[in-house]
Amino acid sequence: MSCLNERFDRLRAAYPAEMASSLVLPLLHLMQQEKGHLTESDALHIADYLGVPAMQVKEALTWYTMFHRRPVGRHVIKVCRNIACSLMGAERLLGHLTARLGIGEGETTADGRFTLLAVECLASCGTAPAMQVNDTYHEGLTEEKIDRILEELP
């Protein structure tokens, strides 16, 4: 944890000293980047580091959708299912991914490579349909394009 705390310190230095509480989300992000998913003890560690109530960090961890509270695959595929993507074939693409990966929404492949999620608007409406694989956006998707993207992932 000491190396992680050094990274915490660097992030904290960017904020005014009296705003420790504002570091809750940035630190949860940083920790998730490091560990893949977050547990209650991670929340307690952050609360302890910042000197804020443990409940505040636990609430944030459970309330925001981007934090994973269960192990996820190496590649988390988030397919937009909102209006613009739906009008451009999001259901069809989600069906394609489900069939290809052999898993349903919210599930992870047995080899731990992929987690498939359906998410709300990614602000890619003009280039719909879209998905995000870990941090990277992929837009103007077709079945073929999705196949290519999956094949190129490590």
Binding site: A14, L25, H29, Y64, T65, F67, V119
Partner: peptide, 10 residues
């Protein structure tokens, strides 16, 4: 100027 990221909440 501080860039701050949310975490998925409309």
């Amino acid at each position: 100027i501080i860039a701050h990221r949310g975490a998925g909440a409309y």
